[in-house]
C-alpha cells in the first residue's frame, strides 16, 4: 500500500512541477501586473513559428522569447491587444494566430465542421428512413439484442 501511495504522490508531484515550468522567464515579466496579465493572454494566442504547435508563451525557442519581449514592449508603449496582434501579423501573417480570424480565405476552415455535421446528420437520417424498421429484406427477424462491440 505504501508503495502505491508513493507512486501516486510521485505522479502528483510530476504533474504539479510540470506546470511550474514556464517558458516566460522572470526577467521578461512586466512590473505592472495588469499589463503582464494582458501580455500572457496575447502570447498564449500567438504561435511560435519555430515549434509550430506551441504558443510563444509555452515555447523556449529564442524567437518566441524575442516575440514575448516585443509583445510586452508594445503593451508598455500603450498599444491595445488588437494593435499588438496586428503588429505581429504584419510581419508573420495570420499563421501566427492560434485562433484564425473569420475572413474570406478562412471561410472553408470555419464552415467545414458545420457543413460536415449537416452532411453527417443528413446521411444518418437518409439511412434510418430507408432501412426497414422491424424486418430485414430476407424476412428473418433481427436479434432483439444487438451485440455490443
Amino acid at each position: 500500500m505504501n508503495f502505491i501511495k508513493l507512486c501516486v504522490a510521485g505522479v502528483v508531484a510530476i504533474l504539479v512541477l510540470a506546470n511550474v515550468a514556464f517558458a516566460v522567464l522572470p526577467d521578461e515579466m512586466l512590473k505592472d501586473p495588469n499589463l503582464e496579465a494582458r501580455a500572457r493572454v496575447i502570447s498564449q494566442d500567438l504561435r511560435c513559428l519555430v515549434c509550430q504547435n506551441q504558443s510563444i508563451d509555452d515555447s523556449n525557442a529564442p524567437l518566441a522569447k524575442d516575440l514575448r519581449i516585443i509583445v510586452r514592449e508594445r503593451l508598455t508603449a500603450g498599444d491595445t491587444n488588437e494593435q499588438v496582434f496586428a503588429y505581429v501579423v504584419a510581419r508573420y501573417g495570420n499563421y501566427v494566430l492560434l485562433k484564425p480570424p473569420l475572413q474570406t480565405d478562412t471561410l472553408v476552415l470555419w464552415l467545414m465542421p458545420f457543413a460536415l455535421l449537416i452532411v453527417a446528420l443528413g446521411t444518418v437520417a437518409f439511412y434510418l428512413r430507408k432501412r426497414p424498421q422491424f424486418e430485414s429484406e430476407d424476412g428473418i427477424e433481427p436479434d432483439a439484442e444487438i451485440p455490443r462491440r
Partner: peptide, 13 residues
Amino acid sequence: LDGRVAIDWGVYG
C-alpha cells in the same frame, strides 16, 4: 545583434 530587424523582415529561421 538582437534580431529585431530580422523580425521586421518576418524572418523566423
